[in-house]
């Protein structure tokens, strides 16, 4: 309908889904803001949660700090951030322990992926 390719929609859906789970499991709630432009969509995930002490570790596949409760429900496999990164053309993370985390991703409509 909008003339966007299905891969753009799929990637945007994966990113928002994973971001949403991160907000619920780790961030204690927050906001997902989507800015749609002519040639790209920017998805910002903002929370005032505990922050990430070691970003390098957090974006490694399989690393998780999710609670047993979340993991019992099948979440918290340590794939959230890596999955977001893989599906985004731009991936930026800004975090401070005790203050919160902001993840900014951009998907270009004409990218090669």
């Amino acid at each position: 309908m909008l003339g966007l390719s299905s891969s753009v929609c799929r990637r945007a859906a994966i990113i928002t889904y994973e971001a949403e789970m991160n907000l619920v499991i780790h961030g204690g709630g927050g906001k997902i803001i989507a800015n749609i432009d002519q040639d790209s969509v920017e998805i910002m995930t903002v929370d005032q949660g505990p922050g990430i002490p070691d970003v390098g570790l957090a974006i490694k596949e399989g690393y998780t700090t999710a609670s047993d409760h979340a993991r019992e429900m099948g979440f918290g496999a340590g794939m959230g951030l890596p999955n977001i990164k893989r599906n985004a053309d731009v991936f930026e993370i800004d975090t401070e322990v005790g203050v919160g985390t902001t993840v900014r991703t951009v998907i270009y409509f004409q990218s090669g992926q």
Binding site: M1, L2, G3, L4, S5, S6, I36, Q38
Partner: peptide, 22 residues
């Protein structure tokens, strides 16, 4: 090649506003 449905408009902003209208 893929054959997706014709977009509501060739302009994305216009297409989004038409989608809202729809």
């Amino acid at each position: 090649p893929s054959k997706q449905r014709l977009p509501l408009s060739s302009d994305l902003t216009e297409a989004m506003s038409r989608m809202k209208q729809m």
